[in-house]
Design a protein around this nucleic acid. Structure first.
Length: 858
RNA sequence: GCGGGUGUGAUGGAAUGGUAGACAUACCGGACUUAAAAUCCGUUGGGGCUGAGCCCCGUGUGGGUUCGAGUCCCACCACCCGCACCA
């Protein structure tokens, strides 16, 4: 008997699909369209198991949708701009473009053997002028529509390398190459006005019924709509122009507990004081040390500087409070100034304790006195509390009610007004780097900032430095140093001017690629006919790490493209359904070295025995850390190509879907891959056996096999539609076992194995094609209509019902499926085990859930 | 620090609020074999009982809602993701 040989099978069927162009997507108004998209990869040069898992899931959906009669668009592209290309050029010479295109070619070569249903004719790379030129056109339209503007914003500045650093390049507050303490420095940069759309982006989340609730919640929290009070403290001994400090608070109900005012180091008042006072300047300089991330600011030591300025409490002008400059206050949120209420806020409590400021309680648990507070008391939302020095004796519930009441009270007393604010900040898109999409504007001394003319697009990145190669070993942006690229005539007046040397954030590239796939070679960013037909993306699949930024930016971009006429009206939610898949992990094998640090061993060096791991080399035991993210430095990366070589793509695809629910991490194990391969071999042999059966052979149990088959059709269909791939695969295992044991006749077995092949085909398309062809199926299985479950065969005549007494299972009865509740109850109460457990006691209540369970309450 | 998530046998996991552990791995036992591999079959949450049936315990910890909780609610612990210039 011949063998299951995936290498031969897979090459053959991939060739057949290519030849018939089954995956080429063509607009066809007569068929329902279906657009499935996986988040496109960064061309790092190697595909990894995470890619395999991501694209396999998309492929399952795509192939299932083809089988159910949809016109499917399933494209692939490359998120090709970004830092790694420049880092590679820095580390080992070469050019980012060469490095990137070589990586794309390499990764495409690695991806092809997976047998994905991708329309490669639509392939795009964001670093190609054909793509980023259209992105520049979008930028110019956004600029004209008032969706882009310039303002100052802080960046990480490396004072030794004299260069801007990405957050990733800051390690514990220091530049990753120079090791110098990073500072926060202001630069003029371009921004998208995403904040104008805060309310809309928040409200529209409700319409995204097929998005994970957690992603919508994260986005809602990120947008951060809040209701609060904005008011002014009048100052004492402050510089001119700062007679008041404007403050925003979401806790106006704690206003009487205020004991200090804090302002951001970037607050205008802090800037005035910085110029006047050396000590302030030194403190502010101290505050500017460290990176720009919110994490760094929020977890850092809370430092304050007493400016000597005081403010008067608006409800008690005799009560004066100090004004501190504090390093944890963000200029970007609210007004850049806060009042501190140490009694009811843990961060303020920490600050007040450190600087010896009074802790004044307005909310008190029970009748405790304020002095009893040794930590901030944040009252539970539902607890009724009292003010001991309250707003003229007012008493409120805690929570939103108190906040609304406090706002109303303050407004009525002429202290500020209730306002709504959002946490969401405008999206800064300027990057001081070479390998990105050039921002198509020119700076002219006479005309100011002038947009490039559209006919001059694309503004292409210069490949070299005039006559020499671009040098990435010098820190900073090579575009700044380019001898000729910068110098261009002003598009408005023609006088010598300078091109903008900043390039765009790579998030811009990934914010509209889904639309570009609908007409990837068009001379305009989109073509209305194509976007109207193909958009929206019906199913988007990617990692949870993109839950906020990429998805929010894409939602904003779709709105901006709608405003500027690049997307049809009301197509501003680009992704109808979203699925976030988990990572592929792998155990780490490590042994301790002399110096206590671990040595990491490759899986090939380790032997597994009795649930323990040993080094093959000397038999010593190895520590196993299960389920860790695959990482080169930990030697626990499994290369998909090796797996494909040993077992074939179908095995790799089957395994990454089989072992864990798709939204959770899956741990790659050699034994799991082995099991997947064994199963596919079993199915292949099963098909071979059935093929060699006598064609007119009759058997017994055809009816049972048929029933089992239709249940499997039903379960697998449900599984595929609801991303329950692992559960669907479990059903396929069970059905395979049933078929293997079946004594049914040839016709029934042939139908069963062909159906099995069809149900497996989204996961293991090559094997399925092979079985289909071997059994004499018509055409390609990829074009065969999805099997339909016969409802009549799904219901059983009898059901087994467990009987519980007080929630504990005591017995079970086999009853007719349509037996009445009364009859079931009678049977249950008469059951010997129930009678024994009740021991003569009369049941208080009997709950019968038809077809499921009986619970007798004693 | 803030926001979000996850936690079930030796392992990955299954389970519209309704028999916890489907399916797979691992282990053990059996068949086949001169032997091994491969293949096939079977057992396996823990404890108890005068064992072929029954009882008790069991889904991170502690509480709660319910006739009934892995599932819903509250608090805590551990781990993972994000925090606006990583992609």
């Amino acid at each position: 008997m011949s063998k299951y040989s995936p290498a031969e099978i897979e090459a053959r069927w991939q060739a057949a699909w290519a030849e018939t162009e089954v995956f080429k997507a063509v607009r066809d108004l007569n068929r329902p369209k279906y657009y499935v998209l996986e988040m496109f990869p960064y061309p790092s040069g190697r595909i990894h198991m995470g890619h395999v898992r991501n694209y396999t899931m998309g492929d399952v959906i795509a192939r299932y949708k083809i089988a159910t009669g949809h016109n499917v668009l399933h494209p692939m592209g490359w998120d090709a701009f970004g830092m790694p290309a420049e880092n590679a050029a820095m580390a080992s010479g070469g050019h980012p473009a060469d490095w990137t295109y070589a990586n794309i070619a390499e990764m495409k070569k690695q991806m092809k053997p997976l047998g994905l249903s991708i329309d490669w004719s639509r392939e795009l790379a964001t670093c190609h002028p054909g793509y980023y030129g259209q992105q520049q056109a979008l930028f110019l339209d956004f600029l004209e529509a008032g969706l882009v503007y310039r303002k100052n914003a802080v960046v990480n500045w490396d004072p030794v390398d004299m260069t801007v650093l990405a957050n990733e390049q800051v390690e514990q507050g220091r530049g990753w190459r120079s090791g110098a303490l990073v500072e926060r420095r202001e630069l003029t940069q371009w921004f998208f006005k995403i904040s104008d759309h805060s309310e809309e982006l928040l409200e529209a989340l409700d319409s995204l019924d097929n998005w994970p609730a957690k992603v919508k919640l994260m986005q809602a929290n990120w947008i951060g709509k809040s209701r609060g009070l904005q008011f002014a403290f009048s100052t004492v001994d402050a510089p001119d122009g700062h007679e008041a400090i404007e403050v925003y608070t979401t806790r106006p109900d704690t206003l009487l507990g205020a004991s200090f005012v804090g302002i951001s180091p970037d607050h205008p008042l802090a800037k005035v004081l910085e110029r006047q006072d050396e000590d302030v300047a030194a403190f502010v300089a101290e505050c500017r040390k460290g990176g720009t991330t919110e994490e760094a600011i929020e977890t850092g030591e809370k430092l304050g500087y007493d400016t000597g300025i005081r403010v008067r409490h608006p409800f008690d002008t005799a009560h004066e409070m100090p004004v501190y400059i504090a390093n944890f206050i963000l200029m970007d949120y609210g007004t850049g100034a806060i009042f501190g209420c140490p009694a009811h806020d843990e961060r303020d409590f920490e600050f007040a304790t450190r600087y010896g400021l009074p802790i004044i309680s307005t909310y008190l648990p029970d009748e405790e006195s304020p002095e009893a507070l040794d930590e901030a008391y944040v009252p539970p939302k539902t607890e009724r509390v009292f003010y001991n020095r309250g707003f003229a004796g007012e008493q409120w519930q805690t929570g939103n009610e108190a906040i609304d009441a406090a706002i109303a009270f303050c407004e009525a007393n002429g202290v500020g007004q209730g306002v709504t604010k959002f946490r969401l900040r405008d999206w800064g898109l300027s990057r001081q780097r070479y390998w990105g999409c050039p921002i198509p504007v020119v700076h002219c001394e006479d005309c100011g900032v002038v947009p490039e003319k559209k006919e001059n697009l694309p503004v292409e990145l210069p490949y070299d430095n005039g006559n020499a190669a671009i040098d990435f070993s010098v820190p900073g942006n090579p575009l700044e140093r380019h001898p000729t690229w910068r110098d261009v005539p002003c598009p408005a007046c023609g006088k010598p001017a300078k091109r903008e040397t900043d390039t765009m954030d790579t998030f811009v590239d990934s914010s509209w690629y889904y639309a570009r796939f609908t007409a990837p070679r068009a001379e305009t960013p989109t073509v209305m006919e194509d976007v109207s037909y193909w958009m929206n993306v019906d199913q988007y699949i990617g990692g949870i790490e993109h839950a906020i930024l990429h998805l929010l930016y894409s939602r904003f971009f779709a709105r901006a493209m709608e405003i500027t006429g690049h997307l049809p009206k009301s197509a501003h939610e680009p992704f109808d359904a979203l699925f976030t898949q988990g990572m592929v992990t792998h155990a780490i094998y490590q042994t301790a070295r002399q110096d206590g640090r671990p040595t990491y061993h490759y899986p090939e060096e380790v032997e597994l025995r009795d649930g323990k791991a040993f080094l093959k080399e000397d038999g010593s035991e190895v520590e196993v850390i299960p389920s860790a993210k695959m990482s080169k430095s930990k030697n626990n990366v499994v290369d998909p190509l090796n797996i494909i070589e040993s077992y074939g793509a179908d095995t790799a695809r089957w395994f990454v879907l089989s072992d864990s629910p798709p939204e959770r991490d899956v741990e790659w194990t050699a034994s799991g891959a082995e099991a997947a391969f064994k199963h596919l071999t079993r199915v292949w042999k099963l098909s071979t056996r059935i093929k060699t059966m006598s064609a007119d052979a009759e058997g017994s149990g055809d009816e049972e096999l048929l029933k089992s088959m239709h249940k499997t059709i039903h379960d697998v269909t449900m599984g595929v539609e609801s991303f329950g791939f692992n559960a669907a695969i479990a059903k396929l295992y069970a059905f395979t076992a049933t078929l293997q044991k079946s004594k049914a006749g040839h016709a029934a077995q042939r139908e069963a194995v062909m159906t099995l092949a069809q149900l497996m085909s989204p996961m293991t398309p090559h094997l399925s094609e092979d079985i289909w062809a071997a059994q004499g199926g018509e055409g390609l299985i990829v074009n065969a209509p999805w099997p339909k479950a016969d409802e009549a065969l799904l219901v059983d005549d009898t059901v087994t019902m467990p009987i519980q007494v007080n929630g504990k299972r005591r017995a079970e009865i086999e009853v007719a499926a349509d037996l009445s509740k009364e009859e079931v109850e009678k049977l249950a109460l008469a059951h010997e085990a129930v009678v024994r457990t009740l021991a003569g006691a009369a049941p208080k209540k009997v709950i019968v859930v038809p077809g499921r369970i009986v619970n007798v309450v004693a």
